[in-house]
């Protein structure tokens, strides 16, 4: 099972990298979203995908799945959610001010000679 998920994670990383290398800001942000999906899935896989009950003591099972990676992923999800929403607003603002969403034309400093 870990092999299959690892391949999926690899594909997600690939798509994310491809999108981040494009010119359009929106595509870049979609790329970062896909990249963070890949990372979260990787965290879950690296914690082990052995069979076990959900980590709820009320279930009284013999074995539970590892709760630590789930807590880590939950933390990483809210962080990347916050960063992504900031990034989207930043892109919107930059689009209004610069009048373009093309990274090539969004050169910051004119004094760069």
């Amino acid at each position: 099972m870990e092999i299959v998920i690892s391949i999926v994670v690899g594909i997600l990383f690939m798509i994310g990298t491809y999108l981040i290398l494009s010119k359009n800001v929106t595509r870049i942000i979609i790329g970062t979203g896909i990249l963070s999906h890949g990372v979260h899935l990787l965290l879950l896989t690296m914690g082990g995908l052995k069979q076990g009950a959900a980590p709820l003591l009320g279930q009284e099972a013999a074995a539970y799945s590892d709760p630590l990676p789930q807590a880590l992923i939950l933390t990483a999800i809210v962080i990347s959610f916050g960063v992504t929403s900031f990034f989207l607003v930043l892109a919107y603002r930059a689009y209004n001010v610069h009048g373009t969403d093309d990274m090539e034309q969004m050169r910051g400093l004119e004094s760069d000679e």
């Binding site: 963070s36 965290l43 990347s80 900031f86 990034f87 892109a91």
Partner: peptide, 28 residues
């Protein structure tokens, strides 16, 4: 500022993703 901060945020988002990847590998 707007132009430069898009680059700054993007670079740091990527490095944060790599940080979590490294943590995941080390944890496993």
């Amino acid at each position: 500022q707007l132009g430069e901060s898009i680059k700054y945020v993007l670079v740091n988002v990527i490095s944060s993703a790599l940080f979590v990847t490294a943590v995941a590998f080390l944890y496993s």
